[in-house]
Amino acid sequence: MATNAASFRRQHRIGRAVIYGSLFFMAAFYLMPLWVMITTSVKHLDEIYAGSFIGLPQQITFDAWRTAWSEACNGTACRGLKPYFINSLLLTIPAVIMSTGIGAINGYVITKWRFPGSNVIFGLLLFGCFLPFQAVILPMAQTLGMLGLAGSLPGLVLVHTVYGIAFTTLFFRNYFVSIPDELVRAAKIDGAGFIRIFVSIMLPAALPIIVVSCIWQFTQIWNDYLFGASFTAGENAPITVALNNIVNVSMGRKEYNVDMAAAMIAALPTLFVYVVAGRYFVRGLTAGAVKG
């Protein structure tokens, strides 16, 4: 009996070791690109060409970061990422606010003020979550041209807001269905109307999903490339487009440290959000599994 227990315990310990071993191995693999990006971005170019890929830098230098931020060339100009970083901020913030606000109202109507056909409308909106944008790029370009918004930041804000509504509506709809209808009834008896109930009762209760929606939209819009490349030109490009241009410029010796610094700069805002509010980020991801 005793030996049995001992062998059982040994087996258990080996099992745990295997589990932890595999997990840590995978973690190393997932961290490797980040490690390589960071270390490369603070190495001298000579050190990189001398063959240091994975190792620690012999000497840390932030020259590459400075270059990437304010000097790197993207084929037309050599002003670094800074102006495009600002573009992305100017475009992301209003688009996030507008799409989240509209999604909140839509979700509220669809769950708490159902009317014949409101479910069909929700179904129509939902397909927008999974639209391959290639199917609408051409008409959108034409329409933006007609509106006089072609190639401009406001045009891109409009595009992101419009195609963000589907997802934000889904978020809020799934959140609001779990709030009991009796709450709305109680408020009606208290004399509150459509708008009052939304502002005083639903919105304050929806704080978590507002955060989820904002984070999701922020990540989506900041990371977008297709719309940015299709609907903006030159000066107005968002950061992803500028990054790709900088990396693909082929003049002289390739400056890998600058590429990596630029990639890090483009990644930092979303990484920051992920580190600060990862829990909400995950909720946004799994909301794609529609259920509700």
Binding site: M26, A27, Y30, L31, M32, P33, L34, V36, M37, T40, I48, Y49, G51, F53, T219, W222, N223, D224, Y225, T240, L243, N244, V247, Y256, D259, M260, A262, A263, A266, A267, T270, L271, V273, Y274, V275, G278, F281, V282, L285
Partner: peptide
């Protein structure tokens, strides 16, 4: 958190990083 952080990155960033990693010369 480690397994999930790549989802927060732009595909452009991912592509740039892996292009460098998979570069045969360096």
């Amino acid at each position: 958190a480690i397994f999930l952080y790549p989802m927060a990155l732009s595909f452009i960033v991912t592509g740039t990083a892996w292009k460098w990693i998979l570069n045969p010369a360096l």
